[in-house]
Design a protein around this nucleic acid. Structure first.
Lengths: 345, 345
DNA sequence: CTGTTAGCGCATTCAG
DNA sequence: CTGAATGCGCTAACAG
């Protein structure tokens, strides 16, 4: 109703417009905008504020960024938005960033880790102030550069040997949680199924914790690992078949390294005619909407994904605001959600 | 290895640095950068290009944006990243944008449509050049403003009465595809389950198509609709119970408006002890990873999500590059993926 | 063909 | 306490 839908592109409202409207100088407007309004006559400040409201003025983040070298932008690089874990983290991070007054720029690797360098470069060129990285960090040089340019980095889920802040799951707590449960339920021939490690520390940590557990419980169970590439269903079938064949009187169960793998294991079990919870036990990392409904329900290790995202964002924002100190590592606990896939009967 | 990890924040590399390095003026560098290098002596251009490479210089999009009023940024507002459809579209759009040289700024409503205005305002203030909106568009004023400022908008999935570009599913094709199949399989007591419409045109279109189908097939089937709020499982149970109770000799089946609803229906069926594909038919919009594994497998109407996202991005980019003309509507076809939930036996 | 100049919108000195 | 002037990094007229 206010303005008719002219097709003339209305030029951007600038600080000059406000200054003119309020009958003051740009500097004064700028001061009001930046909270230094307390240092001037209250009436003037009020007049300026009014003009701002009347015009509906908002400063251009671009210009601000250019001037002060701070863009209030955070770059988020995600390994694969198709992965529910990534999405959940993204969700928490986006919210926390926004609450802290930052906007998120997203770059999705789509599973192609080779594009990581491109991602960081693109984001950096947009002057993001810092990075949240859910990715492999293969390209050390890029990280190095970013750091050198004073751009803090927070890693999510996957550690690097670099001295960086990290927030992720407490895998050393999570794995025994799952395996103790499996053992208690009588599953004693354990198979850890993972995608190729490729330097993903979370996978490696889970694997290590798995091996450690198996070793300390050598009397009660046996444990092996199967590494199956993303589309190699044949390999997975083969691994499960072998597990069954060599089980003897033992009862075979799988620990899946993440949700996509958990789903693939469920699919493989179906293909091979193995009933989950009966002929094959299964616990999978990552709680999902569908976990209760696949087969007899999949028992999961629920990650506090939202909290991980928020924590990552908080940590980064603290760094951006000058928090110094050694790299910090936040390890959040997993929660076991028991369902039919790990309970015979 | 190259540079030691100094903690001195190295200042940003500017066009002046390159100019100095190459012994030319900024303008010359700028020309090379903007493809106008053909108009000058080849050696000079080469020298500049070399300096650029040597220094690893990349222009600041911020400064460019400020200067030319074009940010090469596209704003994407998503209703809820927890919805697989949203994610899939996001994926396609992000890719297409990047290929066209744009970056995506993401704003997730997290199901809170009230924040839409905030989203658009925030994005607009960052000088995004256009919007891809997967949301309700309740706040007409905001859209109006955006358009007036010359920022094109492409709607995804949900139309508005406003004259805007739209890309979404061909619901008029999709619904009969599903219902014909259900009828053929002998399901003749049809229930359309949806979340509250709330002005979401895709839901309304699906509902309308459902009603139209039922009317033209009045002799062969009966059809009703249940509207169940997101967390109101009781209402859903009630609707399914009623469907069963009043079915008589008819065979009851559900058409779920989207993947989350489909999943909820599957959960409800389990709670009520109804076997999918036997006592209850089910077809759900949206193909997902888990559809094959829930119950006997859920029959789905697969949306070409990636293509929807790409198309939206393409359409927007065309507008940004000056393509004039009437609002365009792209309606992409769905594909029926038949599984156990719709096939007795 | 190339260099000089003037802003884009803003925050921040520095004078007054 | 306030205004005028300067420059962030870049592009696009202008000159030469």
């Amino acid at each position: 109703m206010s303005t008719p839908p002219t097709s003339t592109t209305r030029p951007r409202l600038t600080i000059d417009d406000v200054a003119r409207e309020a009958g003051v100088s740009k500097a004064t407007v700028s001061r009001v905008l930046n909270g230094r309004g307390a240092l001037m006559s209250p009436e003037l400040a009020a007049r300026v504020r009014e003009a701002i409201d009347r015009l509906g003025y908002a400063p251009s983040p671009m210009a601000q960024a250019l001037k002060r070298g701070r863009s209030r932008l955070i770059g988020l690089v995600v390994a694969d938005v198709a992965n529910p874990f990534s999405v959940a983290v993204l969700q928490g991070a986006e919210k926390a960033c926004r609450e802290a007054g930052y906007m998120l720029m997203l770059f999705n690797l789509g599973g192609d880790e080779a594009r990581e360098r491109e991602a960081i470069a693109a984001l950096a060129s947009y002057q993001v102030e810092g990075f949240i990285l859910h990715t492999l960090g293969r390209d050390r040089q890029v990280l190095h550069d970013a750091l050198e340019r004073g751009k803090p980095i927070v890693l999510v889920d996957r550690a690097l040997d670099a001295p960086l802040d990290l927030v992720g799951l407490d895998n050393a707590q999570a794995v025994p949680l799952a395996l103790d449960h499996l053992l208690q339920q009588g599953w004693n021939d354990l198979l850890f199924v993972t995608e190729p490690m490729q330097g993903a520390s979370s996978r490696e940590e889970r694997h290590a914790a798995f091996n450690a557990f198996v070793q300390t419980h050598a009397g009660q169970c046996r444990g092996r690992t199967a590494e199956c590439a993303v589309h190699d269903d044949a390999a997975l079938d083969q691994a499960l078949r072998a597990l069954r064949a060599e089980a003897g009187t033992r009862r075979p169960a799988v620990l899946a390294v993440n949700a996509p793998v958990g789903l693939r294991v469920a699919a493989a079990a179906r293909r091979l005619g193995l009933t989950l919870g009966l002929e094959l036990g299964l616990v999978s990392f990552d709680e999902t909407d569908w976990a209760p409904l696949v087969g007899p329900g999949i028992t999961t290790l629920a990650q506090p994904t939202d909290e991980i995202g928020r924590q990552a964002a908080r940590c980064l924002v603290e760094r951006l605001e000058g928090q110094p100190g050694e790299p910090r590592r936040f390890r959040l606990p997993a929660r076991l959600v028991v369902r039919g896939s790990s309970q015979p009967g």
